[in-house]
Each structure stands twice: as C-alpha cells, then as structure tokens.
Amino acid sequence: MYVKSKWNLAALAIMALTVVAHAFGGGPEIWEPVFASGLNETVRISMGLVWHGLTGLFIVMTALGAVAYFKPDLSAGINLSMVLTNLTFGLLALIYGYVSTGNVWVLPQWILFLPMAIFTFLALKTALKHTLKKGH
C-alpha cells in the first residue's frame, strides 16, 4: 500500500508562503523600482518576464506538491525534480548572497528553499520505496 508523504504537504505549505512573499513582498520592494527605472525597454521587459515567470513557476511548484502527494506513480519523478529545483535556488541564494554581499543574511531566500529541498528529498525517499516495490 502506498503511504502518502506528509513531507510533500510541508514543502507545499512553504512554497505557498514563497508565492505570497515573492508576489506581495518582493513585488513592491524589488520589482517596481526596476519597472519604474530609466533602464531600456529590453532590459525591463526581460527582467519583468523573469520576475513574473518565477511567480508562475512557484504557483506551479505548489500545485506539483499536491500532485506528488495524491499520485503515487508520479511522485518520485516530481519530487526528484523539486529537490533539484529547490536546491538550485537555495544554494545559489546562500552562495550568491555571501559572494556579492559578504553576508548570508542579506539574501535570506535560502531559508525557504533549502528546507523545501530537504522536505522534497524526504518525500522522494518514500516515493522511491513505492516505485521500487512496484518494479519487482
């Protein structure tokens, strides 16, 4: 019998929090100064796409957390992809924050992404047991 992993729900909850922080906290503080700046249109449009695209990506990742929880056959693949994506952003926030500012606390985004990487890794372990059992 497939055991749903509660770690997926934990990751989903933090990702939903990330969506709120990115859209409502980061939007006015970080994105709006760029939008209102004198930078040329190509730069503003491309940065705008990256900013809003990431909002969409985080919403999709929240939904994928729910799919991984309810669909055992897809869970391992989704969780592996989420581990790698969360690690990418979490480690980069830690390293880039330290390298560019000399302080890991200036860019605290890793505090959200690294726990999500750990939670999805724990969910991946559960999902792999199901996949391996099914394979035998």
């Binding site: 796409l49 695209g53 909002t55 897809l74 989704i78 992809s81 996949t131």
Partner: peptide, 25 residues
C-alpha cells in the same frame, strides 16, 4: 520508472513561463 513524473514537472514548469512570456508582452 520515474520519467513520467519528471517530464510532467518540466512540462508545467515551462508552461508557466510560456504563458507569462506570451501574455506579458
């Protein structure tokens, strides 16, 4: 064994950017 989950993830992640890029401009 796990390819479907990975490709589903890649599909919807890139769909988010495809829709944003199409509508944003």
């Amino acid at each position: 064994q796990i390819a479907q989950g990975i490709y589903l993830t890649l599909t919807v992640m890139n769909l988010a950017f495809a829709v944003t890029a199409t509508l944003y401009g």
